[in-house]
Design a binder for these strands. Sequence first.
RNA 1: GGCCCGUUCGUCUAGGGGUUAGGACAGGAGAUUUUCAUUCUUCAAACACGGGUUCGAUUCCCGUACGGGCUACCA
Length: 502
Amino acid sequence: MSKKVRVRFAPSPTGPLHIGGVRTALYNYLFAKKYGGDFILRIEDTDQNRLVQGTENYIIETLKWIGIEPNEGVGFGDGQFAPYRQSDRKDSYRQYAEQLLNAGFAYYAFDTETDLEQLKATHPNFKYDANTREQGKNSLTLSKEEVAQRLANNEHYVIRIKLPLDEDVKFHDEIRGHVTVNTSQMDDKVLLKSDGMPTYHLANVCDDYVMQISHVIRGEEWLPSAPLHVLLYRYLDWENSMPKFAHLPLLLKPDGNGKLSKRDGDRLGFPVFPLEWTDPISNEISSGYKQKGYLPESVLNMLAFLGWNPGTEQEIFSKEELIVAFSIEHIHKAGAKFDFEKAKWFNAEYIKKLSNEALASLVKETVTTKFGNQDDVYLTKALGLVKERFVFLNDVELFGYLFQPTEKYDVTILSKINNIKENFNVDAFADFLLQQTNTDLIAIETSLKEFATNNNIKVGDMMKFLRVSLVGELSGPTIPELIQLFGSEETNKRVKNCFSQL
RNA sequence: GGCCCGUUCGUCUAGGGGUUAGGACAGGAGAUUUUCAUUCUUCAAACACGGGUUCGAUUCCCGUACGGGCUACCA
């Protein structure tokens, strides 16, 4: 009996999608997949003045990167309800506005910008509504002839909804329960703008109806206009097929006030965009999760947990597991501050779960650029030694010593191993290292210790010296692992070079 | 200002009329690792406040405070 689940993600291409938007898309996706439904991408580009070049494509690329591809929509193939870009559907909205006009639920308004400014100036808290519309120039106050004349003259006009003076509008929100708003708190919103484009309210309602959307899952910023949408469904006689509403808690700035916004860019010390974005006008670059070295699976998992939880203590979820576990009942009501530390933790966890081969293929390009060509087998083995040190994929840059010897050692670090110089026969040690052909980790360690004892060197001092020689720092993987990786010849070279600088 | 929504450790959250209020991140301590990281153990840390209702409220109701959203021919 209940209709097929069809949800949509409906961003406007007025800037790059930020992570809050991605989360909204994700929740829609999870909900659709859970119930075997459809997930649709609709581009809401009804404001022609705010369009930003390239953002439509950015949205598409983001959804692809993070792995939540719509089954219908702009960039993802047409379903039976194409087109999915509202500017391409422009002509379809007028008929609905006229339907409302004919039914007495809407009217023409000819007020100019100046007219409205004047009304606002003379009436404190002015809003265009049942109490004030008689002061405007509209088809309710003007004579029939004058309205016809103005329309015939192609005068600019908008079509506004005609709201009742005092009526409770009630609806059920899947997250917040019952919500009631009185029409006295609302205003006669413009439905069709003077450029012939619909506003969000009209376009959104019409498209959701036409595209047979079953659930509207969107940000909480839409909650105040939901009653208006309910009224539109009613006045268009679509109330029986009205979708269910779920208004998501907002993502808040971690540092203080307000919802996270596109303008936050890199100001907060972490990216707010999934992909790097270059502003087409200012050329300003904002960093993206992808370029920072986040795995899409990690971002997906992290975002899912911002405002939702599975009700269990499991935190690491694959996309498939999320689909199974997801439910609207477990969406939190309050806004969530973005937790950058947790995002890092998720990413480190996901990198640790990667096989060495998978990690190698993900960082190969960076390694090649930074440190030159590497043999695949060597690269894989080397990464295995440092995998648990990664937070971001880009951290591979910190492990250059795996691919290139240190030419010039840091003097402060050298000063910490300087004491080995006295009565240390570096040539004997280097020769000894060169003779090591055993690749067994324990055997390497044992023979190193033997050398130290036989030559009256403290094991600790020798290990420190070796470490600095091989790594260039006082921390890193175990010595035997490094020797095993580098081989005796390379080990020998590094040791000699390091000692020469002591 | 008006209206709407919200409020559990620093952060993300579980829970819900009677609980030692649970977990995770971050932080502290310790163990392992002759280093560091990992891993493990462990510690500290919360029901915004005031009134009801009730035998009992953090949980239900009402107020207050605080936070957020909306208040455009923007979405």
